[in-house]
């Protein structure tokens, strides 16, 4: 099986003229057979990035139009979903992020330092309990996820919702694999903090509370 990373390496080493030129029938077959089935996944990703139905729809539409335009860059039989997600993510960064002009919700200096290093400060376990997580409702988990900054939210969506590997995520996001790991770890720690707050609000005991009582 060919992985998406192998495709990108292959594409990067190919000049424009070396890329395969598909016939009109082949283009239609790739588009309908390999691209169209991912429409719902793409919309889910787009909606979780923009939180707006119309923007999400525009983003998906824009992605499909670009995919058709650059279809010769796609190698048939490789990971079409990852290829489409990469286009969607780039469109979001280039157009929708500028349009929304949202203020940054994270300390970027701290994040940059973090991103540029593969070393992750793995701490001990938090006092969030497995049982508390299992008892949480979908809305509570969704809210916690949605409250994360977009870069952190994105890695969790790609990994946990869409099931991409670290290697595929690195290609989709254009970042080194070590950065994927560290960003994902950081994102999960932030998510755990949110979920711990929910757990306390819901009245579930955390380990630290139990220790205090004893």
């Amino acid at each position: 099986m060919v992985t998406v990373s192998e495709v990108y390496v292959h594409l990067n080493s190919m000049s424009e003229s070396q890329r395969k030129k598909y016939s009109q029938e082949e283009k239609d077959s790739i588009f309908d057979g390999e691209f169209m089935p991912h429409m719902d996944s793409m919309y889910n990703f787009a909606f979780r990035l923009t939180f707006d139905e119309d923007d999400a729809k525009d983003l998906v539409q824009d992605t499909y139009l670009k995919a058709y335009r650059f279809i010769n860059s796609f190698e048939q039989g490789t990971n079409a979903k990852a290829w489409l997600f990469r286009i969607l993510k780039n469109s979001f960064i280039n157009e929708y992020r500028k349009k929304s002009k949202q203020p940054a919700k994270v300390d970027y200096q701290e994040v940059e330092t973090f991103y540029n290093s593969d070393d992750v400060d793995y701490q001990g376990t938090t006092d969030l309990r497995v049982d508390s997580v299992k008892d949480m409702l979908g809305d509570e988990i969704s809210n916690a996820l949605n409250s994360l900054a977009v870069d952190f939210r994105t890695v969790i969506i790609l990994c946990d919702l869409e099931g991409f590997t670290y290697e595929e995520m690195a290609k989709i996001l254009d970042i080194p694999i070590g950065t994927v790991r560290s960003r994902l770890h950081r994102a999960r720690n932030l998510l755990k903090e949110k979920l711990r707050s929910y757990a306390q609000y819901m009245g579930y005991k955390t380990d630290s509370e139990e220790e205090e009582e004893n």
């Binding site: 719902d40 889910n44 938090t126 497995v130 409702l137 979908g138 988990i141 969704s142 919702l161 755990k192």
Partner: peptide
């Protein structure tokens, strides 16, 4: 166990937003 529970909760409990048929037909 905590990481696994969180991953499973995200995968199984988060709503998957689907496109309406109108939107799909527009595209």
């Amino acid at each position: 166990h905590l990481e696994k529970a969180i991953k499973e909760a995200i995968h199984t409990k988060c709503t998957k937003f689907c496109m309406s048929e109108d939107m799909k037909s527009d595209i």
